[in-house]
Amino acid sequence: MSKAKNRKRKAETRSSPELRSHPAVRNYTLFCLSALFLIVVCLADRGLAWWCLVPALIGCLALLTHWDYGPPLVLLSLAGLLGFSGPLRYRSPPPGGWSRFPTASLMDLGLCIAVLAYVLGHYRLLSLTRYIFPPRLGRPRVEATQRRSADLVTGRETTFLGLALPLWAGLAVLVWGWVTEEAAPRNAPLEWWPVLRLVWAILAVLAVAGVTASYLRQTTATPEEGLLYLQDQCWRLMRREQGLLNRWLTWARLRAQRKQRFSGPSLETRRQS
């Protein structure tokens, strides 16, 4: 019974045929297919033979079924192909460190652009056909209002998407160049120095972004949020002492009520009457 219900729910969340034939959906599907083709070309250039078709096949399948896990699976398959295509043993960086690697080739750049294009395109397609806002807790069924309306897709959006792809890939090449160009300090492990720099750079960016986000949130907080924050801080500091006091006060109040109920009207009431 529950399986049948689940199937029905899934069928309801699938996009309708009208939506599939919408120009925006069609364009994004074609965009993703082109990106997958470019991925195949770049992988074939690396001499991966028939294995180069694996990410593309997964991607095509995910595109046809509008599967949420398509992009992660394509990325993981690429990681598997590129990372484990050689012998399965640890390879240290070439002598002289990462800077001895040849500069990024056009095919590397193409692969980066193609993969980014596929990920971007597929997620935007999912926003049109499945959901852009995650389903609410306790409501597994995706409603139509959680989808992005395909009519809202403009030509400007696609143009920006096309321009953004080489920009991000170029930025990555620049960052990688900056990471590998500087010589390691004395006594530092030569081969791991760029890795350390990259990790620390990422952590520093994350910390700065987190602090900025927190600051922005606090500056735009309403007075109610501010009061709640202060109350929360005060309570966290003294919650055990306050809890103990209030527990006894409540106990005393309830006891007095119980006594009053069983012993009739209080002295005050008797005086009034």
């Binding site: 990325l75 990681a79 590129l82 750049l109 993969v115 971007l120 090449v173 990422i202």
Partner: peptide, 27 residues
């Protein structure tokens, strides 16, 4: 997925994977 690609690229090491991971992470 992006972190897996980047980590694999740095640990294996593979310049293509690292570049790919970095592109996706920056994006």
């Amino acid at each position: 997925s992006v972190l897996v690609i980047l980590s694999l690229g740095l640990l294996r090491p593979s310049q293509t994977l690292t570049l790919l991971g970095l592109t996706l992470l920056l994006w």
